[in-house]
Each structure stands twice: as C-alpha cells, then as structure tokens.
Simulated assay, not measured.
Amino acid sequence: MYIKKILWAIAIIGLVAVAIFAYYVYGAMLAPNTSFNNKEAYIYIKTTDGYNDVRAQLKPLLKSIDKFDVLAKQKKYTSNIKPGKYVIKKDMNNNDIINSIRSNNIPVKVSFNNQNSLEKLAGRVANQFEVDSVSLYKVMTDTAFLKEHKFNTETALGMYLPNSYEIYWNTTAEDFRNRMLKEYKRFWNDKRVAKANKIGLSQNQVIALASIVYEESKEHTEQPRIAGVYMNRLRIGMPLQADPTLKFAAYKLPKYKNTVIKRVLNIHKEIVSPYNTYKNRGLPPGLIAMPDISAIDAVLNYETHNYLYFAADAKRNGFHKFAKTLAQHNVNARAYQRHLSLQGITK
C-alpha cells in the first residue's frame, strides 16, 4: 500500500512536470508574442550586427523579449545572425519569428532616375539599402572595371538604366554594380544592338544622344522627332547646338556653382569645353544626364523627317515648334525669347 502511494506521488509529480514543461514550451515557442497592431513589421539586420543589435530592434515589437531570448539561445540563433530585411507578422510565435529572421531574407525595391553624375547616383541608391555611398562610388568609378566593359569616366553613368530593381537589402556595392551591368546587357539585346549599328552609333553614343534628347523634352511622343533633328545634324556635319550641353558645361565651372541657368545666353556659347556642342561638332564625349529608357529608344527609333531646328513652344509647355529652315526657326525662337522676357527670366 505504501509503495502504491509512492508510485501515485511520482506519477502526479511527473504530470505536474510535464504540465510545467508544456507551459514553458507553449510560452517560449507556440504562444503569439507580437505587440504591434499592424499586419506586419520589418527589421533590417546589418552585416556587422550581433544578437544584441537584433534584440534591440525586436524588443519594442514583442510582448516578452525574455522568452524570445530563451528560445533564440536554444536554437543557436544568438550565434548565427543573418543580415538582410525580414518580416515579422502579427501574432507570430517565437519559433516562427526565429525561422523568419534566420532564412526569409526578402528583397527591397531600389529605384533611381534623373541623376547627372555617378556621385549623385551613389547617394540616391545608398539611401535604399545597406551599402554606403562612398563604397558605391568607389566601385562605380573603378578604372579596371570600366575599361574591361568598354566604359570610361564620361560614359560610366550610362551603364545604370533608370528603373526599379529588386535586390536584397544587404547587397554589397560590387554586387549592385554587377547587377546593373547585367541589366544593361539585358537591355542591349540583339534587336537594340542591330538598330544602333544601323544608325551608325555605338551604345555609348546612343545613350549620350539620348541624354540630350531627354534634357530637351520629357514628352515621350516628341522625343523621336527631336532625336531625328539631331541625327539630321550629325548626318550633314552640322554642330548639334544643344542648349542642355551648354548648361552641363557651365555647371562644371566654379562661376556657375549652386546656380540654375533658366535661359541660355551667348556668353554660355563661349565656354571652352568638349561638351560645348556649339563650338564642337559631333557628339559630346559622354552623357550629360541619365536618360529615361524612352529617350534611348527614341534615338534608336528616331523619326525620319527634314527638320533641322526646334524651339520651345511658348503656348504648349514642354513641347516644341520644329522648322526646316533657319528663317522659320528664328521666328519660333524669337517668340519663345519674348515669352521668357515677359516672364522676367533673363538668365
């Protein structure tokens, strides 16, 4: 009888122990442990982060960081941190959270356009994932890389096609640059390469001309016609006389630093620069800004016509008037100059 009581006592103690263990397992592993009201939250783990850094991000998101600590240590997450962007969904338990931040690195969307230098592009992109702008600029301007892939300091910006790309948040500077090269090569498919060859321009020259077209007009419907004007000028050996190239050349001079040129004047046409397309025939040595893909395709598919001139249309903002003769162009240009004067724009 005495032994029977002992056995019953042991059984009861065992059941209590099992219950306590089950409660511990439920609390540490299976019970929801999020404290935020949104459907999901995100944490960003740097390549250099340790567990304490991750813990600091998690603490305001969880009901009990202590219970999370216990399971993280048991599952050896504390010594196996993975960098990246991770999602934590509302009512996740600790086990699911650890599984998510250990193996579910999700991509971020990186977007850029309208940058006129690699330095500005690096700054724009660095705000969107882990890498810093200094590291990005360094790999973007690496001379060995540029030479290997037929770029130079004047044409390197043309490798970066404005768009939105999905990459991992912890992507390195080198991997980002290489991804952009891959996208560039994908863009220049056989069809586009054939079109460039047909019009007698290299890929770098197409993008250089596209940058001028884009700076002249953001209207997609007008870009092929503007490209046609410049192709006509190139064909007959006429200087491009593109005002955006004068602005680009001017902004490189200390005199025009931190200024905005709203009106191109004769003094700008005297600037000594390879980008002064009033003094120098042919295309400039590189692009003057990052063109949209529409402008690149506008050059490749330029409109065939007999126009040699165009001037901004005072009555249709963003559009232009085209002319076949200098006499007609002068009429159009004077009309726009009067419009600028009436607006008080003198420089």
Rank of each mutant, 00 (worst) to 15 (best):
V125L: 04
L265P: 03
P224V: 11
P254F: 11
K185C: 05
N280Y: 09
Y86E: 02
N163F: 07
K73M: 09
R233V: 07
A173N: 11
F187R: 01
Y214L: 07
K4G: 06
T245I: 13
L209R: 00
S133R: 08
K262C: 07
A196Y: 02
K75V: 09
L121Q: 05
N114W: 00
K269T: 15
L118H: 07
Y42V: 11
L118D: 03
T48V: 10
E148Y: 08
I10C: 11
I43W: 01
W169R: 03
L265V: 00
V54W: 01
V18R: 00
G27A: 12
Y230L: 06
E216Q: 06
K5M: 07
Y2R: 13
P60N: 06
Y309M: 11
V213L: 08
L61P: 12
D66S: 10
V134L: 13
R281I: 12
T277P: 09
L240F: 08
I199A: 02
D53A: 14
G14H: 03
A56I: 13
K182G: 06
K67D: 12
R179K: 15
A289M: 12
L146W: 01
L209E: 02
Y336C: 05
F21D: 06
R235G: 04
K262E: 10
F145D: 13
K63G: 04
N37A: 15
Y256K: 02
A22C: 09
F145L: 14
N178I: 02
L71G: 06
Q128K: 06
K347C: 01
Y2H: 09
T245E: 07
N317D: 08
A156Q: 01
I3M: 04
V299Q: 01
N178D: 13
L300E: 05
